[in-house]
Amino acid sequence: MEKPREWLREKSIAKKILSEADVVFEVVDSRIPLETRNKVVEQLAKERNKKLYIIINKADLVPPEFAKKAKEIIQKEYPVVLFSAHKNRGKKELNRVIKELSKEKKLIKIGVLGYPNVGKSSLINTLKRKKVATTSPKPGMTRGEKLIKLYKNVYLIDTPGIITLEFQDDLALKGSWIPEKLEYPVDVALKLIEKIQENRPEALKEAYKVEPEQEPLKTLEKIGKQLNYIKAGGEIDLDRTAKKVLWDWIKGNIKAYWI
């Protein structure tokens, strides 16, 4: 299985932004906060002695006690802000952090980094109070970096999603890879279903009105049947069902989460 060709280019983008930025806001997905931490970004920030904050975005997709637990774990290493662009949550706290940072230098640039689809652009638009960054549930929509003026001495650097050194299947599980681009979407959907069944099986029942089976393949077949994704000859279209499940995960329609 090939690793995304883009990773080298994106590692160089990350390096460039980390040399330009004074501070890094690493955005992670509240549903899988540890899995969406980008170790390459964190390592590069450490090497360059840059202040790094972790913004746990999409906090509205998880229960408050889960978000609090994730914050406590990550806070042992970095300062954390719980945020929801969708519900406008955490904006005051983040603005307070930005105001504090802006006192340190005449001009401050904050690099906003993270995997595709963790909500970097939504975060920027919420802070700016208007649409300046492209948002889409399609991973990888931001093309190239942009400098966005937030206050007279504070700029945000909007970046494409950084997908360093990983397999497409792993990225798809993070919601950071378009299902249509996967060679074997069924394999990835089965891995995802297995994760969901381990951590919050009722999420599948809520999303698809099916009782999960022990075997992820049987669960996927049940979902396909329920969605009426049937091929000519009466066979369940597993490929189509798998892509639907992966898209539902990307869009936050499956209410599962884990640490």
Rank of each mutant, 00 (worst) to 15 (best):
W7S: 01
K11Q: 11
K15F: 14
K16P: 03
E20V: 12
V28Y: 05
R31S: 03
I32E: 03
L34G: 04
T36D: 04
R37C: 08
K39H: 05
K39A: 06
L44R: 06
A45K: 05
K46M: 07
L52Y: 03
I55D: 07
N57W: 06
L61I: 02
E65R: 12
E65V: 15
A67K: 01
K69V: 08
A70F: 08
K71A: 10
Q75F: 01
V81W: 08
S84K: 07
S84W: 09
N88A: 06
K99P: 04
K99T: 10
K99G: 01
L101W: 13
S102L: 11
E104P: 10
G111W: 07
G111Y: 14
Y115P: 03
P116Q: 04
N117M: 00
L123Y: 01
T135H: 11
S136T: 08
K138T: 15
M141N: 13
E145C: 12
I148R: 00
I157S: 09
L165N: 13
F167R: 12
F167M: 08
D169H: 15
D169R: 15
D170F: 03
G175Q: 06
S176H: 03
E180M: 09
L182T: 04
E183P: 02
E183S: 10
V186P: 07
D187K: 15
D187W: 15
E198W: 05
A207T: 10
P216T: 12
K222F: 00
D237N: 14
D237F: 12
D239K: 15
T241Y: 09
K243P: 03
K243L: 03
W247Q: 02
N253Y: 12
A256H: 04
